[in-house]
Design a protein around this nucleic acid. Structure first.
Ligand SMILES: [Mn+2]
Ligand SMILES: [Mn+2]
Ligand SMILES: [Mn+2]
Ligand SMILES: [Mn+2]
Lengths: 219, 219
DNA sequence: CTAAAAACTTAAGCGCGCTTAATATTTTAG
DNA sequence: CTAAAATATTAAGCGCGCTTAAGTTTTTAG
């Protein structure tokens, strides 16, 4: 009911940093299945020509698999942005809907949405959108907000989108992509930050500050 | 990969004219499966409470099944209209895409699209769109264009959407929903019609004229 | 270097939705 | 009314993607 193969490839693209083999357990955890399900699928994807599978090592994407995985990420992020910008979804609501739509959309439709959005480079959480040909926009230099020195003003480039509750919290305190944050003070005992967001003072936990990514240089 | 149950219910709603049981063969033909697949699914849908199934008679939708089926038709037609009106798809391209999207959309999304479209009553082919509560717009009195007397001018209310080639042909000769057609002449030997569509004279076969539905009274 | 732990694969089996082939029922024709 | 034809159901089995349990390989610790 939701095309497992497409989700495997999308996940493997995200996990494959560099040319190494991706370990089954990682994939299993990301997808919420058992390791043996991953072994099975590894063989299937190899037959399809989407991965190279080496027993006890893991899988590595072929060019075909890489492209297919990037296509899925593209579909997901374009849908997230369309739902957000055009249909008024908040950034904590887009993921779930996009998770289904990405499997039910032709490339024609995705390209049309991209055109309506005027060829965007980033999704609502600041994650890069692969182009039709699988190109990613140039890598940006960002750092965790937790690593910013007090007295600095930075621009939000990306936030961790793994938890809807966290996203709702960010919305509540006024954190947006491309919004400004001024770091006023860092409390050494718990690493929490006193920051100012569009005039309002807020305290951010170390955890929160580690999940907000900002420009390296003050702006 | 495309939720069979939803397609069964949608199909059964369309086939169930009146309160009679729908025969397995009809469903099988509509869905392109064997009759035995329908028997199996009839039992499953009965367990779900979506139909009453009487062996050798067929299935009849329960209230729950009727609602679910109407919801699917609603999703399909709203998507078709959105693709057509907002995203610029032609009326022969909308069906295929809608056929997938209908299974991947929450009611929240569908309601949002409906709002953007300003609560439309009909899809791009003139078929009625069920409301959130399963209500259909009032039944319109239309007749086949083939039954219109020469000398009459009528408005197109609906066209048969079963064949994309037919839809492309209609587009080519200028037939649109709410467009005007004047019937000039009927040739007795083959029942073909000479008609005028926005000033242009066209000959329509009897077959074509039987698949265009128009206002009963001249307008 | 070796034994225990962790990671991975294999084996067996399940639910779903489908098929074909065999069987049963209903409808139609004569 | 009956035999043939049409329609429907049952039986057996298949592919997919998953699970648990058992067995294998690799990694880690001592
Ligand atoms: Mn997402
Ligand atoms: Mn995102
Ligand atoms: Mn359609
Ligand atoms: Mn339609």
């Amino acid at each position: 009911m939701e095309d497992p193969k497409e989700n495997y490839l999308k996940t493997i693209v995200k996990l494959q940093k560099g040319g190494e083999h991706v370990k089954p357990t990682l994939i299993a955890e990301a997808l919420g299945v058992t390791p043996s399900a991953v072994t099975d699928m590894a063989k299937t994807l190899q037959k399809d020509g989407h991965v190279d599978y080496v027993p006890y090592q893991g899988v590595r994407l072929t060019v075909k698999g890489q492209m297919k995985g990037l296509t899925m990420i593209r579909r997901h992020r374009i849908w997230e942005l369309y739902l957000h910008k055009v249909l008024g979804y908040s950034w904590d609501q887009v993921h779930e809907e996009a998770e289904m739509l990405e499997h039910a959309s032709t490339d024609t439709l995705i390209n049309k949405l991209e055109e309506v959005l005027q060829y965007p480079l980033y999704d609502p959480h600041g994650d890069p959108i692969p182009s039709k040909t699988g190109q990613l926009p140039p890598q940006r230099d960002f750092i965790m907000l937790s690593a910013v020195a007090p007295g600095t003003c930075v621009t939000v480039l990306r936030v961790n989108d793994h938890d809807d509750g966290f996203l709702r919290y960010l919305d509540e305190i006024g954190v947006h992509i491309q919004g400004q944050i001024e770091v006023k003070e860092k409390r050494d005992f718990d690493q929490s930050l006193k920051v100012s967001i569009s005039g309002k003072e807020v305290t951010l936990s170390h955890f929160a500050a580690q999940n907000i990514f900002v420009t390296k240089e003050e702006s």
